[in-house]
Nucleic acid binder design. Structure first.
Lengths: 232, 232
DNA sequence: TAGTGGTCTAGACCACTAC
DNA sequence: TAGTGGTCTAGACCACTAC
């Protein structure tokens, strides 16, 4: 019954309150909750304490290990935001071409966004991708999750990636965007994402506020290997 | 209470019936069951319908995502090294006791080591563990891999852990150990490791040279949906 | 402060096991 | 068939959200 109900709702919509559903379906609230528990584990629903229970985004493109900023912030119980700082069409110079595995001079799109969580600046993110992969992409399209956009508009799923973390000092411009002094160390994350055809789809360099954004890993040897932050 | 009880039982032993434990601990049976549920998920217990609930037998698997410094350096094709900077027996103050989940005042061992790769300083690592877990441990034993030592001498496998990464500036002493200026940002890694009994076995704080030691992750959405380097 | 999810209770009956 | 885990009930109160 829950699944049928979810089917009738748009993504992100609130379910009726647990008490109401329990009465409607003539079960105890605890019983209803156990059913909801299962769908929460399957990530079809998310609970927000004191607020409600909500449907999630479509399952096709659901990031598992690999999630974007927006989704990650949501899972942390905050509201993601985005502010476009720069958006440009340009030609790939040598470094970009090598990273993206395209010919020098091919058109690329490069943009820089300030990403926020509950309106607080968290990270400055610069993304570069071949223009041919995202025809018609406009700056205005990028005020939310890039991954969602790729999936919904272009039917593209980024299925793997590599990234590297390093500590750096921010330059003056980045520091002012993030609202921190230039003396405060940040975490730089450089990464590439691949799509199903093993194309390098995008290259990202991001500078995170180290004081606000904790990178954590959970490691387990059995039964299902969980993550692999080399160096542990 | 369940964890303590499990500690007293051999592997594969039956727990007392749920109804009995609920009465003994003065909770509703459903409440007890929820606690058992958690340990079943963690694979410390298994249920057998109509029969009972049992402690599990040790797991087969070895290190996957979780490897120590020595092993990691070897995999990178370098020669690991270690230099003891400090080694002390002391009593757990409140913070340490809470982290290690032991009573305040219990004896602990704390040591700080400089770890090298091909004789170059890479990281200053401070480890704290309950003294009772490693009887007879001497500073001289710790010139190599701690994990190897735990396995070979004490028969202990650390099977899971969590860690957190953040960018920090080194203090003067640490900077001089690492051979860097105090103006160069480093990566701090704070982590705990658990053994099979879900005991917190050790707590580590490490400061890595960001310029020499790259933290990388590889993420894949398929086939095993577990990887979870938050923030990627 | 009203409304939401989060947790717990004390009891009932079902399903399965071990004999 | 006695004893075990599995599921459900109807209610209570707590914690958090959104206003």
């Amino acid at each position: 019954m829950l699944l049928s109900l979810i089917d009738t709702l748009p993504e992100g919509a609130a379910l009726p309150p647990e008490r109401e559903l329990a009465v409607r379906w003539n079960v105890a609230r605890m019983t209803l909750r156990r059913a909801v528990d299962e769908l929460v584990i399957e990530e079809l629903l998310v609970r927000r304490h004191g607020s409600g229970t909500y449907t999630t985004r479509p399952k096709v493109a659901r990031w598992l290990g690999m999630i974007g900023f927006s989704e990650d912030i949501r899972r942390r119980g905050m509201r993601p935001g985005s502010k476009m700082l720069e958006f440009r069409h340009q030609k790939a110079e040598r470094a970009a071409a090598r990273r993206l595995r395209i010919p020098v001079g091919d058109p690329i799109i490069a943009f820089t966004r300030l990403r926020l969580a509950d309106d607080l600046p968290m990270v400055v993110e610069r993304t570069t991708m071949p223009a041919a992969y995202v025809p018609g992409l406009q700056a205005e399209d990028l005020n939310g999750s890039l991954y969602d956009l790729l999936t919904t508009r272009y039917g593209i799923d980024l299925i793997s990636g590599t990234s590297r973390l390093e500590p750096v000092m921010p330059d003056a411009k980045t520091a002012s965007w993030l609202g921190i002094p230039t003396t405060q160390p940040c975490l730089a994350l450089h990464g590439v994402s691949f799509d199903r055809r093993d194309r390098v789809f995008e290259y990202t360099s991001a500078l995170y506020r180290g004081d606000r954004y904790a990178f954590t890993t959970e490691l387990r040897t059995t039964p299902t290997p969980r993550a692999d932050a080399k160096g542990l």
